[in-house]
Design a protein around this nucleic acid. Structure first.
Length: 178
DNA sequence: CCTGTGATCAGCT
DNA sequence: GCTGATCACAGGC
């Protein structure tokens, strides 16, 4: 595992499943402890504690009081770091995801961190769990994929950092790259 | 295409 | 009290 931006780029194209439901990761964002936009910026709290623990675990938080969002914890000694999983191209368990979201449009099923959380039934119970064991499963990306990057979405600090990563040409990202 | 707003809650000042 | 790593829906151009 490397730092958060490196991991965020390397996750693009990998397949993420939770209880057999999910798809290809097409959009991520990196956050680290020296980054004012990160939950970990001001040090450990009860919410962000797992960001300061070992890498390869899930950090789950509630966004805007409504949406459960999934992050991968990264190694960043002394700081907390993670990668927000922002969008998937649905490939597995599509009917379950459509039922959970009441959404028939494949492009909108997992296109955004809140939508993805709902489609994969992410909840607080997954916070702190290992990502290399059930219910999670991860598979390698296909060879030859192209990764693009740009500014992160929905933040007001450190807006110039190009720490949002996407699968080039994907129609399942939450917003286009410029 | 765009802008505005309600929902709903944990963390922080 | 206010803000926020969001979303869905309504309305106007």
């Amino acid at each position: 595992m490397g730092d958060a931006p490196e991991v965020a780029g390397r996750l693009i194209g990998m397949t993420l499943l939770v209880d057999g439901v999910g798809g290809i990761i097409v959009e991520t964002e990196a956050y680290d402890g020296e980054d004012p936009a990160s939950h970990s910026f001001s040090g450990p709290t009860s919410r962000n504690a797992v960001m300061f623990g070992p890498p390869g675990h899930a950090y789950v938080y509630l966004s805007y009081g409504i949406h459960w969002c999934l992050n991968f914890v990264c190694r960043e000694p002394g700081h907390g770091a993670g990668v927000l999983i922002r969008a998937l191209e649905p490939t597995a368990g599509i009917s379950r995801m459509m039922n959970r979201r009441r959404q028939q449009d494949l492009r909108l099923l997992c296109s955004g961190p809140g939508r993805l959380g709902q489609a994969l039934a992410i909840t607080r119970e997954l916070n702190g769990k290992r990502l290399d064991a059930p219910p999670f499963s991860l598979r390698a990306a296909a060879a030859g994929i192209r990764v693009v990057c740009g500014r992160r979405i929905g933040i007001s600090k450190a807006v110039d950092r190009a720490w949002r990563f996407g699968l080039a040409g994907s129609r399942y990202i939450s917003r286009p790259f410029r």
